[in-house]
Amino acid sequence: MKFDLQQWINTGRLKSPWVAHYDCGSCNGCDIEVLACLTPVYDVERFGIINVGNPKQADVLLVSGTVNPRNRVVLKNLYDQMQHPKAVIALGACGLNGGIFQEAYNVVGGVDKVIPVDVYVPGCPPKPEAIIDAVVVALGKIKEQLEKADRGQAVNG
């Protein structure tokens, strides 16, 4: 019975990724594309994806833009407040490695300089389809984590 419940929970985890979106200093190009996903044209709710404003209730963190010394703390805090299991998606060229700003004096670099990133979505900006695909891939990552956990390892240490 307990095993069954665990399996149900795993099913639920894969079917209900709640997304929190943090803009680290993007030019808003990526953010517009994220918003596009929520419109009826792309209708991400079909996959159970909901955009929540609260990292404490989110499963997936979407980060766009370059990380700088001011917001790296915020990014880390938001990530820490998410409950396990969780995944992070870095959006766009800036999120990946700082993009065209990577040489700037106030840029730390990509998102993965601060928190572990599971999925990278290139593009300037990425297409909405790519973002939706990234969430699906992130779910695969969560599934991997869960399988690892089933084999007795800690969940996403």
Binding site: Y22, N54, P55, K56, V73, V74, L75, N77, L78, Q81
Partner: peptide, 9 residues
């Protein structure tokens, strides 16, 4: 833990 404060808790 700390409450949610827009990431600057």
């Amino acid at each position: 833990e700390l409450p949610y404060m827009s990431g600057v808790q």
